[in-house]
Design a binder for these strands. Structure first.
Lengths: 136, 136
DNA sequence: TCGTTGTTTATAATTATTCTAAAGAAGATT
DNA sequence: AATCTTCTTTAGAATAATTATAAACAACGA
């Protein structure tokens, strides 16, 4: 069990006041053992299920975006109708099971170092992400 | 200059009848030296500009999707409001300039071999794609 | 040429996301 | 604790990409 203080700290760091709704969002996002891949809609539904309280969709969007901006959530680059996020913000990659629309973590050592041998003048590398699509 | 016959062949292979509109789409997509990264909207506008003839948006969507399904176009996994496609369907990767929303090809040898050391039972790898985000 | 089947098109429908503005809650000040 | 200011929540409207619809039209084969 993670303390509510940690959620409040995350919220404050993201310039958000700790409200009941946002604490509920944190509960669903961060109170877990394993990494969590989700869409806004997944999260929206889980909040109702897990906390028994409804939070408006707009608040879910706003809070997720603030956490993403602050670096507490990572956006997963994948073409889907919905945007996927990940609570694991460390450097890592993904499998995407196209049929089941499911994401699976790939540890960095499962992929090995990736050397980018090309550079663009005036630009620096912000992130390197590998997406491995899976089929049956 | 690529012959119209090639376009017709691509269309037939994709189970599409060669109509005037579809030939125009092919003209914009495939009659070029370099690889072409685009959104449906880019393409829609370019058709008007380059051929002088308007093709309905629905037809652009349908044709692009048929080509994608057949493997004549590649979808680029990136989170954006619009879906990006690529006429270069060979195995390769991308830079994405986040600020300018621009894609740049990365040759396979610019990245080097990527070894995926993990497997999921019952699933096989369909594709491995690297996205390198660039910032200033 | 005729009949069948596939295609184009404008427009409506759908869906994810963002915006808005009014009512409510948090935080600071006394 | 009362008050004031600022931020937040919310339902619903607005936006934007994509998909569906169905009537007019074009390709193809006989």
């Amino acid at each position: 069990m993670i303390s509510k203080q940690e959620f409040i700290e995350k919220l404050r760091n993201s310039s958000l006041r700790p409200t009941k709704q946002r604490i509920n969002i944190c509960e669903v996002l961060f109170n877990r053992d394993k990494t969590f891949h989700f869409t806004i809609n997944d999260l929206f539904n889980l909040i109702k299920d897990k906390t028994g309280e409804k939070v408006s969709l707009a608040t879910v969007y706003n809070t997720v975006h603030a956490f993403h901006k602050k670096g507490y959530l990572k956006e997963i680059p994948i073409n889907s109708n919905q945007t996927y996020f990940d609570t694991n913000v460390t450097d890592h990659h993904h499998f995407f099971d196209v049929k089941e629309e499911k994401l699976i973590d790939l540890k960095n050592e499962d992929v090995g170092p990736i050397e980018i041998q090309k550079s663009i003048p005036g630009k620096k590398i912000k992130s390197v992400e590998v997406l491995v699509k899976l089929e049956d």
